[in-house]
Design a protein around this nucleic acid. Structure first.
Lengths: 198, 198
DNA sequence: TAGAAATTCCTAGAGGCTCTAGGAAGAGGG
DNA sequence: CCCTCTTCCTAGAGCCTCTAGGAATTTCTA
């Protein structure tokens, strides 16, 4: 039981591992306590409550993923950077489904600011330096990247691509190709005089 | 208490409403029973278990969304169809966050086949008739559409766009513009002799 | 070095959720 | 009128969350 074995960080780490094994739904404070060889009541001294534990896993995952992204981006530019970064996202989602799911819990502004969320968008902006985009198009493009990455990983993870023989790897590759040409051919701000949609 | 007031469909409907109000996490069998004025034990005679209730909500949502999509697509083609359909997705996600989240639960193949999931991909393929795409590009494009729609709605829903002043509506509009040009300029199958990524 | 303070861990227990088992009470058919 | 089916109930076990209060151990401090 080793007194002092339980810290907030260690709890979050154990929770993240558990979440990856059994899914974010199955990640309970009780089970984390069990794995740490400690009574569940004790964990509430380190983490506020069950939701806060999920938030901690989210923060942890955000940071891990940002670290991997930074490595992938180092020394790369243009499409190469885009693909490397995208692959990091997808690989992380498949390797760590629980952590990945946790990243989608809503963070309060305070926590969000302290998290690695900003690093994520900064890295996407860095990728976009390979494509000539001014604000606000750059922000829109960041959101497009985020949507495609997250959407694909999420759909793939929930089995959405299993109903068709086409391999997910191939689709992913083509999606990134398309994203590359789309960013290069980013449409002009006010197309043809009128609102485009809505 | 009106004997016979509880059927599997009515339970799913009440569950969907509850999920929209309190989130999919907060949607419990107990609370649904409470709202139907019935003891929770009773509901287990209609639905197998809590997970099955979520599945029922997912199936319900898939069907509702497919219906709306069909309406949006009627009489439209090309980019107009793309935008109308995409808006249906986003609006549904904002109107019915609980139902929308439920759609991402993993369905067993049996349930998936019986669900409206197929209608969704068929409709996306219909949209793609406005763009010249053969298989397997068409499948890849369907997955791109799904990823962008779901990714954007999901990120917006979890507050991912609130850290920047740029309005989500504007970004959405530009994202769809970009998607339109991307589909039009869909890159050739084997670009420049070698593998593109991975 | 002994006492005080802080920290870590515990037991106990309330209250909620899931789900099973078994029983009562209407509703329709013979 | 009785039989059966269905709907609904109570009881209760097991797990989870979270609070309260107490014991043990480490660390500060005089």
């Amino acid at each position: 039981m080793a007194r002092g074995a339980v810290t907030a960080d260690r709890v979050a780490e154990a929770a993240a591992e558990l979440a990856d094994e059994v899914g974010l739904e199955g990640m309970t404070v009780s089970e984390v306590a069990r794995r740490l060889g400690v009574k569940d009541a004790n964990l509430y001294a380190h983490i506020g409550n069950a939701h806060e534990l999920r938030v901690r896993v989210a923060v942890l995952a955000l940071a891990e993923l940002a670290d991997r992204g930074a490595v992938a981006l180092a020394g790369r530019a243009g499409k190469e950077a885009l693909v490397a970064f995208a692959d990091v996202y997808r690989d992380y989602g498949r390797e760590h489904p629980g952590r990945y799911a946790a990243m989608r819990v809503e963070l309060d502004p305070e926590t969000a600011r302290a998290s690695a969320g900003r690093r994520h968008s900064d890295m996407m902006r860095a990728i976009l330096r390979g494509y000539a985009l001014e604000e606000p198009d750059q922000t829109d493009a960041v959101r497009l990247l985020g949507s495609v990455f997250h959407g694909f990983v999420s759909l793939e993870g929930s089995g959405g691509f299993r109903h068709h023989p086409r391999g997910a790897d191939e689709s992913w590759s083509r999606v990134l190709d398309t994203l590359d040409v789309a960013l290069r051919a980013w449409p002009a701000s006010a197309p043809a005089g009128a609102e485009t949609s809505r």
